[in-house]
């Protein structure tokens, strides 16, 4: 008797349910459980709304994530555009150089930033935090934009030029709209990890600045599992909303492509 090949997915399906779906269900259950007496309750969320410090950290983290995303976009878009133009950049090595840092341990990169600031005798603090964030996540902005731009059909640009559009019009009316899927997935790839980082902020600011990720980590470490789960769930919802707003399928457009 032969086994159908489709059943080969079964072991992995079981694994996914146990180690991907179930943990997320558990977080939700813990978040809605009363830490005192058990039972379903909204106590953890009420606690969050009433804890001024945590609320402030939450809002501040969103601000930092937004600023980082905008800075990455402003710096990254021109870079992606240049990389995609064969008349301005012929070498594929520069492309690889821009993508490589994505694969270096974030902690190592953060400590390297700390080392750079020490070396340049610059103070650690909010400035270092923003530099570190942009430095950490810029490649994640460049890569998707570069991908869409280099796949773009060049004849659209030519058509616009032939019809008499000046370069600025060609950019705003043709290139930019066509590259929006890449921009959105870049925004997502920068915003999501920035909003959820921990450790990075404490190292870059000598514990002066706290981000929401650190708040979650501290609560989990100190045994406030229910409250920590609730905070994690809030972050998950925030990320879910961002994903929906920016269009989910954009994030995985490189499915058929290589690793890099």
């Amino acid at each position: 008797m032969t086994i159908k090949r489709s059943t080969w997915a079964l072991p992995y399906m079981v694994f996914l349910i146990l180690f991907v779906a179930l943990p997320l269900v558990m977080i939700t259950v813990y978040a809605f459980t009363d830490p005192g007496g058990g039972g379903i309750s909204l106590k953890n969320f009420v606690k969050f709304a009433n804890t001024a410090e945590d609320m402030h950290t939450f809002v501040y983290s969103i601000e930092i994530a937004l600023i980082t995303t905008v800075l990455c976009l402003l710096l990254g878009y021109p870079a992606a555009w240049i990389l995609s133009r064969s008349d301005l950049n012929r070498s594929s090595v520069t492309v690889i150089l821009f993508i490589l840092p994505m694969w270096i341990n974030m902690l190592v990169r953060t400590l390297a930033t700390v080392a750079l600031f020490d070396f340049l005798k610059l103070p650690l603090g909010e400035g270092a935090l923003l530099f570190g964030m942009v430095y950490n996540f810029l490649p994640f902005m460049i890569y998707p934009i570069y991908n869409t731009l280099s796949k773009m059909d060049g004849s659209y640009v030519e058509a616009a030029q032939d019809l008499g559009a000046p370069p600025s019009k060609v950019f705003t009316k043709v290139v930019l709209p066509l590259s929006m899927p890449g921009v959105w997935s870049g925004v997502l790839m920068v915003f999501m990890p920035t909003i959820s980082t921990f450790a990075v902020a404490e190292l870059l600011t000598l514990n002066k600045v706290k981000l929401f990720g650190t708040t979650i980590q501290e609560n989990i470490n100190n045994g406030f599992w229910n409250y920590g789960s609730a905070l994690a769930l809030i972050m998950l919802v925030l990320i879910g909303i961002t994903t929906m707003l920016t269009g989910e399928d954009n994030a995985r457009e490189d499915e058929t492509g290589g690793v890099i």
């Binding site: 943990p23 977080i27 959820s196 980082t197 990720g213 980590q217 989990i220 789960s229 972050m235």
Partner: peptide
């Protein structure tokens, strides 16, 4: 899910499990 989930969520959800 594991590819879209932030590390911290993956970590905490497994910890809770």
């Amino acid at each position: 899910i594991p590819m879209l989930n932030p590390d911290i969520i993956t970590g905490i959800s497994l910890f809770i499990l």
